[in-house]
Design a protein around this nucleic acid. Structure first.
Lengths: 214, 214
DNA sequence: TAGATTGTTAATCGATTAACAATC
DNA sequence: TAGATTGTTAATCGATTAACAATC
């Protein structure tokens, strides 16, 4: 198993490196130093070098980093599999928006199924997919080799879905609900996006400004 | 200025405490210990006590915490101002979804204006608000005492908006774009939600599982 | 060779966890 | 009083930053 001990903060920075390095490549920049990259990233040269050295180090002493090589290596890391398959549960306002997002953005994730528990929308078509009922969920995910589930339901629905997930081959959860999947299973990888919490933290920081930093 | 040095991780946990404590209150639970709360939060009793002591400590030695008191105190912290005013820029798919989100969720933030730079949608009505052009932006924000701007535009549009923000009284940015507002002004508080980066980090962790923890 | 810049080890910093005296 | 549990100080842990030898 490669890179067994890459710290989570480094993983979270990888997509940002990728974005900026893609821009540099499109600019025609061919070479960049850790200091220059740090200035773009808003970090330090040390952090840039430490981060890249988690993957073996892509640079050349005395010279810097080749933009092309950096681009290729980070792309290899982030798009190791081009064919990750995802289903989305909860086709409300947020769900439709996230489905649209995943289809449009180049993230290496392919949306292959939509589910809902509301009989009023089951059977409707969205993005050329028929919205399925939760009764078909487990079978579908096994049959279609689904890797990721995107949860866009209220907390209660998420809680009902949780045990079903364990009966599929699903490996990761992109969770927009307030249900806490953390304790479900150690092998499951959960990425939470808690929009409400996020906005409330912003509110707190505004009303109590002087405390904390970004 | 109160609580001048509350660490950012503590601030980010406050909304979660608030959620769980609200549930406990609705359950009829009147008293809870740091160990019990830690079990719910997925943290440690030490962390719970350290966190609350950033705000003076809400407990009673030998007894624990009063759920009612905790609820009131954290509510006071998070909803210090019930009347934070926000505008949203970029009424595409994501923008409409986030506008809807802010209107429906009880976050203490009120949506008072919608903006776009696309003449095809300017003038349209959404949630009983007329979508305004960016020409009206600065004046509107000053006149209406806007505190928060929600950025749901592509990177290029966000870049154009950035200098305009400085000419208003806006204090915080809820940023869904890939433009980096961090270096704009030290007094501005920025909360980034980078959905694409987030999903890519999840992909990375799935394909390289064995590395990192939630 | 001299200058530049990496890779890597060491130092610092901050957050989390543990320990324990205070006290209900 | 004895038991429980906090508030708070100390220890640990991990991430960031600094330093410097290696090397292009």
């Amino acid at each position: 198993m490669p890179n067994v001990k890459v710290p989570l903060p480094v993983i979270r920075r990888l997509p940002r490196y990728y974005r900026y390095i893609s821009e540099l490549k499109n600019n025609g920049t061919t070479r960049i130093s850790s200091s220059q990259l740090a200035a773009i990233m808003g970090s330090t040269p040390s952090q840039v070098r430490q981060d890249f050295n988690c993957f073996g180090g892509f640079g050349q002493q005395g010279v810097g980093y080749s933009v092309q090589l950096l681009y290729e290596e980070i792309q290899k890391l982030l798009f190791a599999r081009q064919d990750l398959r995802a289903v989305l549960v909860g086709t409300g306002n947020l769900g439709i928006s996230m489905a649209n997002f995943v289809m449009k953005e180049n993230t290496g994730v392919q949306l292959v199924g939509l589910f809902d528990n509301d009989s009023a929308v089951i059977g409707n078509h969205l993005f050329n997919m028929k919205i399925k009922s939760m009764e078909e969920f487990s079978d579908f995910c096994r049959r279609e080799h689904v890797d990721i589930i995107i949860i866009c339901t209220p907390k209660e629905a998420a809680q009902e879905i949780a045990p079903m997930i364990l009966r599929t081959g699903i490996k990761g959860i992109w969770n927009f609900s307030h249900y806490d999947f953390a304790n479900l299973d150690d092998s499951l990888i959960v990425e939470n996006v808690h929009l409400r919490d996020n906005l409330m933290a912003l509110s707190y920081r505004i009303t109590h400004s002087g405390s904390g930093e970004q």
